[in-house]
């Protein structure tokens, strides 16, 4: 599904990632952990094609094709979805209208017919229940006046609607209370399938109690320092990140 080889990324001339390798097979859930400033969000944004990140080396292959050659909207249409850490407000743009435009943009790309208002509403109702998302949010402006929890639920709701091949969740757990966290986890778990891969970018282990990953990677010093199974997350929770830094330093 996703193959990252020796990825090097700089921001404003400063090296953030210096040779990152990652392989995600179809159906797998990978957690990317690491201390603040280790480049976790940089990785998420580079995958989605955000401007301002200079790729200085390496390659990213998505289903065998280079992702770096594609515009952000082309990546989205190809099946890459990013759940944002800070979903942005778009005043005056009705949330339902926005979602429908997004779903139809991707359907067009796939050669499917566009959904009309009625079909779309049916789809929305079907997905809404899973996330305990209040239907009134659909009639408001995109993320306008949403609470932190509502914004994150709305991101996962979009994930459910768009059914991407690769879902990247950037710190989706940050700022969530336990009920919202469970709903979000429930939403993500419901979407697990042999065809869909997920990358969870997170600082804390608690999300991983609810979404059990196949692999856990720890980013440190611009590359993946340690990888392991889901037990690695618990080890990090009890031991902190310092030992990873030390091991990374020793290995370099």
């Amino acid at each position: 599904m996703l193959e990252i080889r020796d990825l090097r990324v700089a921001v404003d001339g400063k090296d953030i990632l210096i040779g990152l390798d990652l392989h995600v097979a179809p159906g797998e859930v990978h957690a990317i952990m690491g201390p603040n400033g280790s480049g976790k969000s940089t990785l998420a944004h580079v995958l989605a094609g955000r401007e301002g990140y200079e790729v200085t080396g390496g390659e990213i292959l998505f289903e065998g094709h280079s992702l770096l050659d594609l515009e952000p909207e082309e990546r989205a249409c190809a099946g890459v979805f990013l759940a944002f850490q800070y979903p942005v407000e778009i005043p005056g743009v009705n949330n339902t209208y926005f979602l429908k435009a997004a779903v139809n943009a991707i359907r067009r790309h796939r050669g499917q017919s566009e959904l009309d208002a009625m079909d779309f509403l049916t789809l929305v109702r079907e997905k809404l229940g899973v996330l305990h998302l209040d239907e009134s949010l659909l009639r408001r402006g995109v993320n306008v006046g949403f609470s932190g929890g509502e914004k994150k639920r709305n991101e996962i709701f979009q994930l459910a609607l768009m059914e991407p091949k690769l879902a990247i969740l950037d710190e989706t757990d940050s700022g969530l209370d336990i009920d919202a966290l469970k709903d979000v986890a429930h939403g993500v778990n419901a979407l697990r399938s042999p065809e869909r891969s997920t990358i969870l970018v997170t600082h804390y282990q608690r999300l991983l109690d609810h979404i059990v990953p196949d692999r856990v990677h720890v980013l440190s010093g611009g590359r993946i320092a340690v990888s392991g199974g889901s037990e690695l997350a618990r080890e990090l929770e009890s031991r902190g990140y310092d030992w990873v830094r030390e091991e990374a330093a020793a290995g370099a």
Partner: peptide, 26 residues
């Protein structure tokens, strides 16, 4: 904002469509 444009584009909406959507919202 670049954030608004990127958000729309990440959802598959092309740049010009995103601009007109944001302006119409305004």
């Amino acid at each position: 904002s670049d954030d608004q444009l990127f958000y729309c584009r990440q959802r598959g909406i092309g740049e010009e469509d995103a601009v007109s959507m944001i302006v119409n919202g305004f």
